[in-house]
Design a protein around this nucleic acid. Sequence first.
DNA 1: CAGGAAATATTGAACCTTCAACTAAGATTA
DNA 2: TAATCTTAGTTGAAGGTTCAATATTTCCTG
Lengths: 153, 153
Amino acid sequence: MSDDALWLDDAEMETWLALISLVMKLPSALDEQLRRDAKLSHFEYGVLAVLERAEDHTRRMSDLAYLCNGSLSRLSHVARRLEEAGLIERFACPTDGRATLAKLTDHGLDILAKAAPGHVALVRHLVFDVLDEDETARFGVLAKRILTRIEEG
Amino acid sequence: MSDDALWLDDAEMETWLALISLVMKLPSALDEQLRRDAKLSHFEYGVLAVLERAEDHTRRMSDLAYLCNGSLSRLSHVARRLEEAGLIERFACPTDGRATLAKLTDHGLDILAKAAPGHVALVRHLVFDVLDEDETARFGVLAKRILTRIEEG
DNA sequence: CAGGAAATATTGAACCTTCAACTAAGATTA
DNA sequence: TAATCTTAGTTGAAGGTTCAATATTTCCTG
């Protein structure tokens, strides 16, 4: 970690304040819409969405946690609630006795399909309606660069 | 809200996944360092940092909540804990009987000063070490544009 | 292959945030 | 100015997340 430059200059501070505000406010905005339209948190929506794209609508808990950007413990609690609500089911992995597989149920797929259009519309409204094609690409590149740093830690 | 384009194209999806991962992982990264070095959450650090820059190290609760990107209720709970820990104090506003003012104590300032270098170093490491001057400016502009949308909602 | 180390997942407790209800004070208006 | 509306803040309960401890299985090593 570079310790030389010990404070942020004005331009850096301006960008940092924008980023940190974005980071703190985007989740609430997404949660609000999903909670209202589908009684799901954004994290729960993410779990369903990842499963929907997975082979046989099934994934290992630990893979799922990674793909959903959450801890395994967090996922485990959420999975219990989703299972109780009948949106997913869990069962032992046949090839690795330690692993648990989570699978999207038909009901879960229904709920996801009902929630998705409103969610996508919001994402488009908040992000892609204000970024042109070029800006979208550049923004993604920079976000990924920061993300890589975070994941290295 | 535009309802026309109902799904994200590949480039948009790529950028969206990067952004949402960033949004979900940055807080934990910041929390971890601050928790370890100063026993503060990032939100608590933000409260102290905003007060430090305020006139007389004092601000109204509602202004503070806005500047910290949190709800007034959240701030109220956090302020109680910070007050119990002696990092801030609260007192009635002399000019508006409804308002409460929060003020950074000397002890709070000490704790903040102890936490700041590590925090800034982490921010620099995660963000500004991987963005040049031009990228920093552009990234800030785009983040602010999205932020504006969120705040309009 | 026995024993220890690492990986996978769950659980309960502690902690934090959100939500809704409530108190109190200032602003508005009839 | 009395009645009402709005603004500011706090609080307790409900719900979600983190952290540490635990159980179980697999992998590795001597």
